[in-house]
Structures are given as C-alpha cells and as structure tokens.
C-alpha cells in the first residue's frame, strides 16, 4: 500500500488519503467525493477498496472529506455550500497534483457525491471525466409503464386495488421528495451534459437497483436524455441487483470492476 494521509486545503481544514501507484502511468488522477454524510472511507468502506484497486491499475487517487464532513473542518468563509464544495475539490486537485503530477481529473460520486461531481464538471476545466453513481435521471412514461407492469405481475388484485385507492387519495396531497438530493430540472441537466460532452468529457452513469424509485431500466437514460445517450462519451450501466450503498462485498467488487474497466478504456494508463 502506498497511501499518505494529509491535512490540506486553503485553511488547512481538509483531511484526505492520497494513493499513488508504484509506477504512475495514468494520464488522470481520480478523486472520490463523500457519499451523503459518510466519511471518506465510503459506505461499507467502498471508497477504500475502489481507490486501492485503481492504484493497482496505475491511477493516482484521493479520497477526502468535504468541509464539515468526516474529519474535515470548515474554512470559516461565508460561502454557499456549492461554493465551498467547489473550493474543496479545487484544493483536492492541487493536493493530488502535488502528489502525482496529474493535472486532469476524474471525479467519482455516489448520491450527493454525484450531484457535487456534476456541479464541478459543469465548470471546472481540469475535470475530464465523471463517474455518477445513482446520479441524475428522471421518471419517463417508460419508467411508469415498467413500474406498474411489475406491480401488476407481482401483486394480488386486492393489494393492487388498495394501492390504487391510496394513490388517488393522496393525489391532492403534497408529494414526498423523489430523492434526498434535490434534482435540477431535466432540461438544465440535459444542457449541462451536452456541454460536458461537447468539451470532450467522458461520463459513466451507474444506476443501482436502489435507485428504482426513479430509474428502472438501462434504456431509461435514453428516454430521459435522447440523443445524448448515444454520444460516444457516455456509458451507462444498470446494476439492478445492487442496493444504493453497495452493502454486499460482491456488489462492491463488481462496481469496482465496472469503474476500473471504464477508466482503462477511456483513460488508458
């Protein structure tokens, strides 16, 4: 293992672990963002296994805690959360550059981490690739058709009638949020993705079975974003068996394999 622990950042307030390969040959460094409130090791230590595997494949990595999460403090400046995240990720890039001489980066984010990675990829010129784990997608007519067909097949008629009754009863009431992370309008996300792809970014979208509340088939990405889904810079993987946080070791290993294979294909070491 060749990992080093760092306290870094503009206010020396961030904590992260840089991993450098024995023979660095990759053209990009990989930065893994916090998933929700979980510290930098990731849910069930997902980020540790992932970054170490990528190190073994030749990629320098950094897993770190954003301001206020895990072991990181705050810089005390009056910034919005989004500005703070942007400044933190910029600090993280500088650290990984100092450790590995990489100047281009791939961001990996799960859930809120995917939302942060999206925001960074919109504007930051050093981001050349993003792995979105249960990132943005939107319910489509196809989603609803599959959703109700499955219910029809699996549910008894009485339970189905009850569910329909409850749905009608709730129709006039306020809706629960679809996802804990706020989703921007679909047109805005589509415009962002188009711009990213126009700048040559490589994008991997992995949706788990745990995202079934808003994503339930590999083709749904195309239903959401149309021709963008066919762009050579886009790859989509629907990991239906897995849950949202990859609680099972075999699912974490499979996800690691998916990410590593994509990196090797798009950014060969």
């Amino acid at each position: 293992m060749n990992e080093t622990a760092h306290r870094f950042g503009r206010a020396h307030h961030l904590v992260g672990i840089a991993g450098t390969p024995a023979t660095p040959a990759a053209p990009v460094g990989v930065i893994v963002l916090n998933a929700g409130l979980v510290q930098r090791v990731g849910p069930f230590r997902l980020h540790v296994g992932l970054t170490r595997h990528l190190n073994a494949c030749g990629y320098p990595t950094l897993r770190f805690d954003l301001s206020g999460l895990g072991d990181s403090g705050v810089d005390g400046s009056p910034r919005t959360r989004q500005e703070q995240v942007a400044a933190d990720v910029t600090d993280a890039m500088q650290l990984l550059t100092s450790q590995s001489r990489c100047t281009r980066f791939v961001l990996i984010g799960l859930c809120s981490g995917a939302a942060h990675a999206h925001a960074m990829a919109r504007t930051h010129p050093q981001v050349v690739g993003v792995v979105f784990l249960d990132g943005y997608a939107y319910r489509t007519p196809g989603f609803w058709m599959r959703h109700y067909l499955r219910k029809l097949v699996r549910t008894s008629p009485i339970r189905l009638l009850k569910a329909l009754f409850n749905r009608v009863r709730r129709a006039g009431q306020a809706h629960d949020p679809v996802f804990e992370v706020g989703f921007p309008p679909r047109a805005e996300v589509a415009a962002d993705l188009k711009d990213m792809l126009g700048r040559g970014l490589q994008l991997l979208f992995v949706f788990s079975g745990g995202a079934s509340g808003y994503f339930n088939h590999a083709r749904q990405f195309r239903e959401c974003f149309g021709a963008l889904a066919c762009d050579p810079g886009v790859a989509v993987h629907y990991f239906v068996a897995a849950d949202h946080t990859y609680v099972l070791g075999k699912d974490r290993a499979a996800l690691t394999g998916i990410v590593a294979a994509w990196l090797r294909g798009r950014f060969p070491a």
């Binding site: 079975g209 079934s212 068996a241 099972l248």
Partner: peptide
Amino acid sequence: SRFLRPRRDV
C-alpha cells in the same frame, strides 16, 4: 426496501 429482489445468491 433495500434490494429489488431478495439476494439468495449470497
């Protein structure tokens, strides 16, 4: 509520 289908493969 976690898995779409029970994980009997584990």
